Computed example of a mutant assay.
Amino acid sequence: MPRTPVRRIAALAAAAALFPALAACGGGSQDGAGGGEAAADELVVYSGRNEKLIAPLIEKLEKSTGVDVQVRYGDSAELAAQILEEGERTKAGLFFSQDAGALGALSDAGALAKLPEKSLGKVDKAFRGSEGDWVGVSGRARVIAYNADDVDADDVPDSVHELTEPEWKGKVGYAPTNASFQAFVTGMRVLEGEDATRTWLKDFKANQPKEYAKNTAVLDAVDSGEVSLGLINHYYWYEKAAEEGEDKVTARIHFLPGGDPGALVNVAGVGVLGSSGQNEAAKKAVDYLLSEEAQAYFAEETKEYPLAAGVSSPVEDLPPLDSLEAPDIDLGRLDSLQETLEMLEDVGMV
């Protein structure tokens, strides 16, 4: 039976309680009082993307659109729960989420406004909400990192299911408390079901993978030879190669074929809050984030995939997005984070 919006809100709020408190940035009051009408050139953004990355882009947005922007930074799940708690009183005009799941929860609750087709049409249907009320602005692929001195490229697993085999016992790094790993597990639940996912998690844990706090630590462990393989997002490797020089990086990455759940392509995306009275300014911001300038910013700064049609990544040797064999999944269904956290806790991973 599908979950009701109320249950989805409760699940998201419960998940949000696991994350740190919000950080506020920008001028004006941040006390959460009242939505209502706002000037056409004013916009409040709740951003699940970090300030270091987004602040320079906000400056570019303001210059390009003439919109005065205030930003509240925090965790995506926590901010989505904040929006749902505030309801029609929310000051947020635009929600900028680190992942699709939080946008899916707001969509299910009816909190997001429909976006113009001219905006939606810039992005492939796979990377936008099925209800037409949110759109991805950058993408990241799950990959397997491997130590090239220890593992031949032809021997790297083509499926996460192979990671439970005896030959990889104690040789795989992962970050169970990281949001991207949890989104991958949620994707597996959607694609393969609860029982199959629980079985994989138990078998994977029994194979004694090594835990790390975040993706960068997993990649560093692969690069140093501490582990042979690691589960990460693609852009961490490209950032490391750009910073250190590819010839100085022993780790390499493998994009999984065949629609494997380990090949999930998740997105950072945006949705306009329907009750905020800031729709005009928010939609200007959406169009700017899908502009060539903003798309190039993500591609260059984070090595993520640009999602707007006609914009290609300048990152050398990055496989084209349309060449990836990602699983066919409605990204909005990644909203069931609480159920994933419960499963991870139950099998002893968090």
Rank of each mutant, 00 (worst) to 15 (best):
G136R: 00
G245H: 07
L337C: 04
A263Q: 03
F204K: 02
A15Q: 09
L61R: 04
G245T: 03
T199N: 08
G27T: 14
V172W: 04
W200T: 09
I58G: 02
G230C: 09
E88G: 03
V272T: 02
G187R: 09
L84C: 12
E316F: 02
P116Q: 01
M1W: 12
L57W: 00
G32T: 03
G110W: 07
L307Q: 00
E246Y: 07
K52Q: 12
D155M: 13
L106M: 00
D203Q: 13
A10P: 06
A268N: 08
K240G: 00
I9M: 13
P319G: 01
D346S: 12
A263C: 07
W168S: 07
L321T: 02
L43C: 14
G277S: 03
R49K: 14
S159A: 12
S180T: 14
V67D: 05
D287G: 01
N279G: 10
R3W: 12
D328S: 12
K60M: 10
E131D: 15
L84E: 07
A326Y: 14
A242F: 07
A221S: 13
C25Q: 15
D150T: 15
Q278C: 06
E304G: 02
R7C: 04
F181P: 06
E86Y: 04
G173E: 07
A183H: 08
P20L: 04
G230R: 10
Y297F: 10
A285C: 13
L103Y: 03
A81M: 03
V190R: 11
V222S: 02
S312Y: 01
